[in-house]
Design a protein around this nucleic acid. Structure first.
Lengths: 210, 210, 210, 210
DNA sequence: TATGAATGAGATTTCATTCAT
DNA sequence: TATGAATGAAATCTCATTCAT
């Protein structure tokens, strides 16, 4: 029954278009401030018709987060499999993360507002998000253990990295001077450099203050 | 006329309490998702009475942002006046920023949702925010010029730093293992280290855009 | 106890000032759209203090209407006692009415929004208003009976007259070219002339149409 | 595509019903005192559903005024085109005005509360209202110039006429003895007679301001 | 699949009024 | 007398969602 197949494919395409529209809105105005009418308009559908593709607003958010978390998880897993130094693996993950949240791909809003999901969906997203964070943390920790990275709090450092990456959706303008790839490259360089011991140098390298 | 003075002080105290409650709510649930009822309840007032102290929700947001921006501006100005190396100045600003956004002080939400303000208030906040960012960027740029920091894009690096700092309100839990001061110290160390040339300057540096 | 007397007089003065302020507001924005805060501000009192002089908003409206109805009733009674022709008596009433509703005297809002009063007060106002209308109607009817006026529906004509007079508060501007007295004189001339038989003239004097 | 046409017509009908209900409420209780709930109930809709047809309360008022002003403008223009004496033209306008404000047609509230409109809508209504008043004033002025009417202040006289007409919505009861057409005829006769020189031109004429 | 109509719940905000001092 | 603080009720309006077609 190829007709059904074609309809299915069409439906799937539509769903991706909607997800993309929703992601864009969620990113730029936030979940609570984004109306279903707005999403529908952006996806060129009537508000009522939206409900033929998704059960509701929360499900849209869920799929947005699900989609980009999957993509980012794939990236971090590929990085972990690579036999390159921790620094290089971490840079790859950072570039992938930036590509994902700043690119025009559908669903790139994984970093946003988990609390707006109903409990069961929230749990599922949290599991993946924690897996993702843990994988990054493990790259950091591995670098520390191997001596490639300086000794530091892997957890806090990972949060700093993720913060720099996730916050980018707030200031990035697609029509600005830098491309997502520029941002990814610069962030990767800077954020990894902070894990590598500075030259024996001097008084300017550490804690100090009283 | 000490009676009037006392009444004024009382009113001022109340306003700070309300601001504090609002800031907490805005930080944890976002502006749009936070209801006036919620803020009123948190400040132990009836919803209607809230309007005796502030004209409306947007004014609350404005004062939150104004208050913490002022505090942070003071910190960054003090740092710029100091005759210490750029690294030390930057660390001081980072620690102050974290203290400000994670501390329990009223209004600590300057980094949030400028778009929800009406145009005139938005302009005023943006002016201050831009001043603040520019001051940090200047510390970074000064370090680059003097050779203390590696050559990099000062603007993007500043955004990365601010992202790491601002995002902390999303994951930080006051009852967790780390104190705001722990976070500030670790972030200062990590984020400044990334500006100092690493020793084994490998070929995998990956910046230096065209 | 002259002190009490002085306080009473003072209180009475204040009440008149408030009534005047309330009347001005009611006239220019209507009862429902006028807030107690607005009246209080116009009378230079705190909102709460207003309630020391009047029980509430409806009582203010009541006294406004009561005051000017009394004044207008006095005028119409004086006119009825006069032994002048009906035309002259009617003109006097019209001038007094205009003076009353356009002048700066307190309470000049009798023509407004009886329905906003609670039933008992409403009844009392309606009694007076009906007395007033009846007195005017009687002047009209007397003129008709005596042959001084043309034969017409006294009731409808009275409504037309009152409409012209009452509506003046909607378009009259105290800083405009005409004074209240100008308006009163012109209206008196025009509205009375309509009651006096036009010259035998022609086809242009009456019903006609089909 | 007759289906769409039918739906459109249905929607249009609904809008007229709502407008009619709103006009009735505004006329009898005033704009500020009329609640959206009330209008919704009168139009047999849920309050929320009202907003499917009109953007808000002010838009309802605007369309009420717009609708009846258009109708009245058409009447006054037709009258001006007629080659009958000024008296007859004025009578026609008066009858049309009364028909319009007292009839059960939708939107007949043009004379009400322009100040409750937002500035841009207010401007548009004022333009039309001024055109209407000017057209009536011109009929009066033409009669004066031609000697058909007595010499008088055309502006004030027009205001008197409009006041008599507009005020009628305040006292007219559809279930009373007089029909709107009775009122229109009586008002037309009386208000035009006042413009025609009375025979016994006594000294008590009292106009002719300095 | 597609959509205009419909709605209950809830948002922010205003208001007349009262209370405590 | 005077007032800032306080509030319950109600106002306008929005929103996610469902229904009927």
């Amino acid at each position: 029954m190829p007709g059904a197949g074609r309809a299915d494919r069409r439906r799937h395409t539509r769903r991706l278009e909607i997800l993309s529209a929703a992601a864009r809105s969620f990113r730029s105005r936030g979940f609570a401030a984004t109306g279903m009418r707005e999403i529908a308009a952006a996806a060129d559908l009537s508000p009522a018709n939206l409900y033929h593709y998704f059960r509701g607003k929360q499900e849209l958010l869920y799929f947005c987060q699900e989609t980009s978390l999957e993509r980012m998880l794939a990236a971090v897993r590929a990085a972990r499999r690579a036999r390159t130094p921790a620094a290089e693996r971490l840079r790859a993950v950072i570039r992938a993360h930036v590509d994902c949240v700043l690119g025009e791909m559908e669903g790139a809003a994984a970093h946003l507002e988990v609390d707006d999901l109903p409990a069961p969906l929230k749990r599922r997203i949290l599991v993946k998000r924690d897996l993702y964070e843990r994988d990054i943390r493990r790259i950091v920790a591995a670098g520390i253990t191997s001596g490639e990275f300086v000794d530091c709090d892997a957890k806090l450092t990972t949060q700093a990295i993720l913060g720099a990456l996730n916050w980018s959706v707030r200031w990035f303008r697609p029509d600005g001077e830098r491309s997502p790839s520029d941002v990814g490259t610069a962030f990767a360089a800077y954020l990894v450099r902070g894990l590598i011991a500075a030259p024996s140098a001097s008084r300017s390298n550490g804690r100090k203050r009283a």
